[in-house]
Design a binder for these strands. Structure first.
Lengths: 363, 363
DNA sequence: AGTCTGTATGAAAGCGCTTTCATTTTTTCA
DNA sequence: TGAAAAAATGAAAGCGCTTTCATACAGACT
């Protein structure tokens, strides 16, 4: 069902009594035409209800004024939020967003990315640094500028705007260690095809190891990102390993599930058990006990990715990597290890954890 | 930064030893060429890493294989979910999604919709039936097929896939009335430019009026969709009007806030106070007490909107209006009116509210 | 053998714009 | 006042495809 025969640019030109070229310029480069002419053209545009034909424009000018975003899923509020911010940034600049999601399937990711590039996006926003070799090859070959988000490209090869999952995880682990916890479990999203989740688990493990505490596989559960799954996972963990005094969750959704499971089984938080999240979604501050978590500036990531891409398209130079600030939000869901559990020479934990200052971005 | 000089279709044609037309057909209408030829072309495509040029294709064929969606915001999980489902549906059909949001600003809505139409979308998915006259005019003139979602077009003029906010609201109000509540407040999102929110408030008012119970303006609070706002709004309501025994919320986010406020002030739910939500987000079933709400099949709305548009583009006929099923989810956050409050001749409320059967779609 | 299908291919005309490049008009300045 | 520079406009050549339309050549039928 093609569009109805609507006014084209030469209709506008004729109606304004100018040539096609002048009409074109009056619309896309108004500075180049005489004010009187410009106004005549604008009047003709309004009169005819002229709407430029994007495909023709893109074909002739070799730019589509369209950017693509490929996210795992919008069902995770952090990606919804960054995507929302990205779209707003682009709209303000006269750009449009082509959106695709892949639900953590690398093949789907390649397919939808191809589709976006076929549509002629001028640039691309991707999530994470974990992509199939085919995708990497395709991106390199198709020569479309892109930004990786939610990550700082470990190799430093690509443009990216994100934060150090490594540092954030280490700091959270440190926090619990400082509270005296030694029996710690990790509740993670699926780590396959998700470098962020993988990094978080690995770094928690590393931090614990730094204090001589192992994190056996049995204490790491991977599950889908949902409250119910988080709840179920903690239940399993606790049944198998009642000595646990704390759990570090890969995101706040899982942490909320953990909190609910504690409530259901009468485990007082934080008196008996500590729960830590990641992301700082709105609910984290509102639930009771309020959730200790890491605040990620989700909207800022989307916004900056858009701004950076726009800047690059305009020929400006931007720093290859941009770090956004994250902040440990110490709230009520974590506390000193329960007295009975503080064996193994745990040093005395501070009773009032001090709110840690935000980690500032590098630039 | 235009794409690098990459292979074009005539390169493919030459490499395969066929004409441009044949190469084109081999790619977009494989049934029309001899199997041997087809394979030669495919090999050439693979060898050259050929990626079709969408704009050229769109220009020549007058269809972009792109659909647009205009949503209020992705920060509301219901729109994130339906958009996610829409994008998945389109991707499976070889279509791509252009996404825009307007944050409940009618001017922004017109602007972003224009932008999508300029980009040559073959069809459009909009939310609600509440649009500016300019938008209506623009849509009519630009002749792009569209679907309204989350609503059943009251006038019946437009294609739509949604549900009756009217019936859902009436049933929820009825439920609380049946439990004996007479002092009921409404916590709504902003109703300006939001027909769904407006309808919900209006129908609750209507249902109460049916039992001779007024719903004064003072008992209706409009606020932004956030947990904190929901909490604050209920606080205000309760302080101003301590006789209240129940609140009906415009969505689950607000209801969660209401629940938290009750917990904070030691109001037992549902013994002292009842809270009802709308949408049935995941958390609704998980919190304690579990939230009584209306289940909306968010993903299905997005999916069906996509499927219907695709069908229409393929020349098939679809019913003008499609209703998706909604279901009253009676859970633990609503209960009989507290004994002390049951004045004014309330008839005895059922102690065990029976789970009501789902309302079935019409077709 | 001659005509008629039907299938496979190719030639060429755009799709609706942007963008050189050339030309005309206006402004500047000696 | 006239030449040079700057500003404004127009003509025309594509951008990379799809899609008639025409042609060629099998096999089917009389």
């Amino acid at each position: 069902m093609p569009r109805k025969a609507s006014a084209r640019l030469d209709d506008v030109a004729r109606s304004a009594g100018v040539s096609l070229s002048t009409a074109s310029r009056a619309i896309s480069e108004p500075g180049l035409v005489h004010p009187d002419t410009r106004e005549r053209v604008q009047r003709a545009v309004a009169m005819l209800g002229y709407v430029p034909h994007g495909a023709a424009r893109a074909l002739a000018s070799r730019r589509s004024r369209t950017l693509g975003a490929v996210v795992p899923t919008l069902d995770n509020p952090i990606f919804a939020s960054s995507t929302q911010a990205l779209q707003r940034t682009l709209a303000a600049a006269g750009y449009t967003l082509l959106l695709a999601s892949h639900e953590y399937d690398p093949e789907a990711e390649l397919a939808v990315t191809r589709a976006l590039v076929e549509r002629g996006v001028d640039g691309l926003v991707l999530v994470g640094s974990d992509h199939s070799p085919e995708l990497a090859r395709f991106l390199a070959q198709s020569n479309v500028p892109f930004e990786l988000t939610w990550t700082l490209d470990p190799a430093g090869h690509h443009h990216c705007v994100g934060f150090s999952n490594r540092l954030a995880s280490i700091r959270m682990a440190q926090h619990l260690l400082d509270l005296g916890h030694r029996e710690i479990a990790v509740l993670s999203g699926y780590t396959a095809n998700n470098d962020r989740a993988r990094e978080r688990v690995a770094r928690v493990r590393e931090a614990l190891a730094g204090r001589g505490i192992p994190l056996p596989e049995a204490r790491v559960v991977e599950t889908a990102f949902s409250v119910a799954r988080g709840r179920a996972a903690l239940r399993g963990l606790l049944e198998q390993d009642p000595k646990l005094t704390a759990v570090i969750c890969g995101n706040d959704i899982l942490a909320l599930g953990a909190l609910l499971e504690c409530a259901a089984r009468g485990l007082a938080v934080p008196a008996d058990f500590s729960v830590a999240g990641f992301d700082d979604i709105e609910l984290a501050a509102e639930v009771s006990p309020a959730l200790t978590t890491v605040r990620i500036p989700t909207a800022r990531i989307g916004q900056r990715a858009g701004e950076r891409l726009l800047a690059r398209l305009a020929g400006k130079r931007v720093a290859k990597a941009e770090e956004v600030p994250v902040e440990l939000m110490l709230r009520a869901s974590t506390g000193p290890v329960p007295a009975g559990a503080a064996r193994r020479g745990a040093k005395r934990a501070p009773v009032n954890p001090v709110r840690t200052a935000a980690r500032k971005p590098r630039r």
